[in-house]
Design a protein around this nucleic acid. Sequence first.
DNA 1: AATGAATGAGCCTTCATTCAT
DNA 2: AATGAATGAAGGCTCATTCAT
Lengths: 206, 206, 206, 206
Amino acid sequence: MSTVTEFSLGKREQTKARNRDAILSAAKQVFAEKGYEAATVRDIIRSTDLASGTFYNYFKSKEEIAAALATDAAQRLQPILTEHRKRATDFRGYLDGVFNAYFEFLIEEYSIEAPDGRRVMRPPATQDVTPAQKAVFEEVRAAISQRLGKELPAGSDTEFITAAVTGIARNVGLQMLYRKPQDTAAAARFAVSIILNGLPVEERRD
Amino acid sequence: MSTVTEFSLGKREQTKARNRDAILSAAKQVFAEKGYEAATVRDIIRSTDLASGTFYNYFKSKEEIAAALATDAAQRLQPILTEHRKRATDFRGYLDGVFNAYFEFLIEEYSIEAPDGRRVMRPPATQDVTPAQKAVFEEVRAAISQRLGKELPAGSDTEFITAAVTGIARNVGLQMLYRKPQDTAAAARFAVSIILNGLPVEERRD
Amino acid sequence: MSTVTEFSLGKREQTKARNRDAILSAAKQVFAEKGYEAATVRDIIRSTDLASGTFYNYFKSKEEIAAALATDAAQRLQPILTEHRKRATDFRGYLDGVFNAYFEFLIEEYSIEAPDGRRVMRPPATQDVTPAQKAVFEEVRAAISQRLGKELPAGSDTEFITAAVTGIARNVGLQMLYRKPQDTAAAARFAVSIILNGLPVEERRD
Amino acid sequence: MSTVTEFSLGKREQTKARNRDAILSAAKQVFAEKGYEAATVRDIIRSTDLASGTFYNYFKSKEEIAAALATDAAQRLQPILTEHRKRATDFRGYLDGVFNAYFEFLIEEYSIEAPDGRRVMRPPATQDVTPAQKAVFEEVRAAISQRLGKELPAGSDTEFITAAVTGIARNVGLQMLYRKPQDTAAAARFAVSIILNGLPVEERRD
DNA sequence: AATGAATGAGCCTTCATTCAT
DNA sequence: AATGAATGAAGGCTCATTCAT
């Protein structure tokens, strides 16, 4: 009826989009709070103001919405990681970029408002690795492969290295989430330093 | 009747202990196979020759038996770790001992016989950190604290270091479980080397 | 605007009639395919190009459209039956006419194209006798009453006779629908012969 | 504890048997009232004083209990029919025996107490023929085949005859159920007479 | 009118837990 | 204590129907 109409969606589309978002974000919250297995579709719709049946207008099942969430997250993370790999001039720079990106992603994605107001991370309890985790893993593995025979010795055990790097990412990231303030840069610096130099141990002979 | 009672009391206690063990070990297997959420009490008692009601003579709930299992495992692990700490003469030796012990523990505890004959790990799907994990974390943290100002610089971030070490333990351990053969010693060597020296990267100036 | 309205009113009515027919015929097909209970309103509207809400502009419920269908069918059948009664000069002729009419009606009404190309009957699964069945029943009963004291002995049990006649109609009709080709004339001839003469049994004394 | 114990089942077994029977008879009633499709498992358990879950201790599904009921009914009917065939010396005697048996079976099986106290038949609304119906059909067909070339002309259309006979059985049986008193013998006499002699029509030439 | 998303009662089923035996 | 059937809350999901657009 006015020019605005041309730019805005119809009311129906607006509602649809709003509902879809409400469901998605409720699901994210609920999954974070109770874990994928323990979370129920009813939990999800109960934390929206929608009716139970409405859920199924948007997602076929709990599985589907979980996939949607995970894919979505991974799709936001992956290009950032890849970009870092492309832009990095050395391995240290790459690692630093990747850790920073991942830690920021964690804050956005998995830290949730606890009842007491604190932001707490509850990583997805799915047994199976989430797409986001897989994305990091694969990206890091690719980066490491690229460096083999260059900065990294040819015979390196790529999988163990990847495991170690992502293990550090996971746990240091978790630790960072519990801290106040959540200092991603410091955490990244620490992680990179461990990976490249190890602990600054003075080996003794006693 | 009295003497009989005395004898059968002994027998009863035996039976009780045997039943409790049967339930615990069935639970361990079932949790490993299906994960905590998916596992049902029925699954557990079905893998024993007991009746469903009997379960509740020994454990109040599925939650309680899970806790019992976890505590139990932790209680077996902890003294080993502590022993290593006491016996170790240097940090490298300590780390090596701890990783070896932990990786062996993993094999015993979480790897299960898959239908295809492979041994697969299904770490407990509980969201909350397991007692065993907590035990490792605390032990390692204690060991690190002990070294502060000695092999480790005084101002070190104990928690980040612990996080990194346990993250590596977790992921490298997982990786090891997937391999054939499961070489705990090699995995431990790798983990220790990363922690003490970092990746053997030749930093370039390009 | 007024003239336009007059024209579009005409169009509207056309559309309404067309929609109603579309829904009715979709329903007929769907009921035939899946049976009344299994058929859903969604199934019905899905086989039209209308929206689900539109269904309720035409029919109050699934029940109502089923009734409409049945009534509709009965209303087409009834005059034919009545006509036969009026035109018939003797009972045999009447029966023959009625059976032929009924069997043809069955083919039109309940036989559907199965996926394998065969035409299969799926009689309405409603428990309650359909209007068409009732129509036949009443018509036949009327015809029989008319003949009482004439071709039929005065004391005859009209209801039992009607039951027998319609029972034969029902089952022989069904049988005919399963055959290929569907020979209504032969089926009618058989039915009439049974009713008038019974089975051609040679009673024996053994 | 007493001799009685030897003859009676344990209390548990008694309860089990009673529950199973309660469910079966509730199901019979509910199926009769609402038809197989419309009936729900909840309807069934709601008409017992058992809890919803209990149903599934006895039957896996609605389908299974329906099968149990149908099989059961058919298994009671079939031997009676077969016996009649064997014992009958002529076709008339056979038919009379079978109709009597079938009508009595109907009363036992499908007539239910209506809210108004009348006993009403509501034959199972399943689309697919019930085992009991199939039993009758097959039995009658067998009997007819046996008579072919003897009392029945060799070229007879067995299927049409069977259809006619069972159609009469069905509808006359229904009619009988609606009457008070329910006179199976009279109904059987009528049915047999129709089948063997047809209606007592005086064919006229007018 | 037509639309189609929203609604919510209700379905089938599972399963932790209780309790009579 | 052991048993195992009974319980009933809860879950995932469907679908007739309503209602804002």
